[in-house]
Computed example of a mutant assay.
Amino acid sequence: MKDEANLETLIQDVVQSSEIEGEILNPELVRSSIATRLGLDNSGLVKSDRHIDGVVEMMLDATQNADKTISIERLFGWHGALFPIGRNGLYKIDVAQWRSGDMQVVSGGLGKEVVHFEAPKAERLEVEMERFIGWFNTGSLIDRVLKAAIVHLWFVTIHPFDDGNGRIARALTDMQLSKADGVNQRFYSMSAQIKQERKGYYTILEKTQKGDSDITNWVVWFLNCLKEAIIASNTIIGIVVRKHQFWMQNNVHNSNDRQRIVLNKLMDNFEGNLTSSKWARITKVSADTALRDITVLVNKGFLVRTDSGGRSTNYVLNW
């Protein structure tokens, strides 16, 4: 169950961290990529693409190898993994190197621009990142959870890359939290909680970056966010436990791979209603085979047919 809980948390981390930046990743592709890299059973799952694999590799390197130091080369490797073709959509970006231009966060129309934040000039990045990396790798008396808060703030304030700074900052945060937890498995997702509190996240960042050197309010916000992330993890763990109990109580050995795949999907917040045509698309079988699979599960009591009939006949999980 620990492996499954770790898997579900990592999926949340990868999907939600990208979504904060406005990029929507397919959770099933993320699941497949993570399961493959962790050596977990991913039978029947769709093959992930190179971009998702890069995001997953960065997150796993940060959390599975939290005991290793960071370096310029390691950060450049993460950045290269995030942007394997050297572009973000239509825009070409500098990959695996510090940004070469200025960076401002601006809103408002022409002539009415409001500068919310201005990062250090490009010529300062090498020195700033050397200081950051040296501090990150040095042991100190500061509590590691508090250090995670400072790591996040410091990195996004330097903003060393053309793009991907937020995702790398959250990976570094998870790396520090893994050090604090003393384990390389994740059972709560800071990225998912930051996504939930995105408006407050950007507000406190702007206030802190525009203020003096007092970062107390940022640290308090971060700790409250972490607390809520840990509380929210009960939902993920609860689902994992419930799935485990379901398979323990039912004879999984008499179900084929297709049936196990769809049953697991139904336990993972399946969107919409399950129909025989959806079953056929998911498992890539004929309509007749899909209906036979479903009938077996209905007869076993795993699925229940709803009142609707004909082509609109759909099924729900009985758990």
Rank of each mutant, 00 (worst) to 15 (best):
N137L: 00
G139I: 05
V55R: 12
L90W: 14
Q16N: 07
R260E: 12
H253A: 15
N250M: 05
A290Y: 00
I236Y: 10
L29D: 02
K2H: 14
E28W: 10
A192R: 07
I204G: 00
E8M: 10
E271D: 15
F222C: 04
P160G: 07
G301P: 01
L291Q: 14
A287F: 11
T306K: 14
D162H: 09
N299T: 13
Q104V: 05
L75Y: 04
G139K: 03
G182I: 03
F155V: 15
D163C: 07
K2V: 13
F161L: 02
L110W: 13
R99P: 04
L141H: 15
I70Y: 00
D257G: 10
W135Q: 00
G310N: 15
A122E: 07
I11V: 01
R260N: 06
T295D: 12
I194D: 01
L146W: 06
K284V: 09
L29S: 05
R170W: 04
T36H: 15
Q97K: 13
I34D: 05
Q97S: 08
V114Q: 04
L40T: 10
N26M: 14
Q104I: 06
K300Q: 13
I230N: 15
V298C: 05
S33H: 05
L40N: 08
R260K: 11
R170H: 05
T289F: 03
I150F: 11
F246Y: 05
R170I: 01
I230S: 10
G101S: 15
D53T: 08
N42I: 12
V105D: 08
L172F: 03
L141C: 15
K210Y: 11
T203P: 06
R37D: 04
T69R: 02
F270T: 02
L75E: 01
N299P: 08
V296H: 11
A62C: 06
E271L: 13
W218P: 05
H253P: 15
S308I: 13
I168E: 03
V151M: 02
I261P: 02
L317H: 04
T283A: 12
E73H: 11
E197N: 15
I34P: 01
S17M: 01
Q209V: 03
N256C: 08
R198L: 09
S107Q: 09
L153R: 05
V316E: 14
L205Q: 02
A229V: 05
T283M: 11
S308Q: 15
L141N: 14
H244D: 13
I168N: 01
E123P: 13
D268P: 11
K265Q: 09
D293G: 02
I133Y: 00
I133K: 00
H116T: 05
A280R: 15
A280W: 06
A229E: 09
L223Q: 10
A119F: 01
I282H: 00
V262L: 03
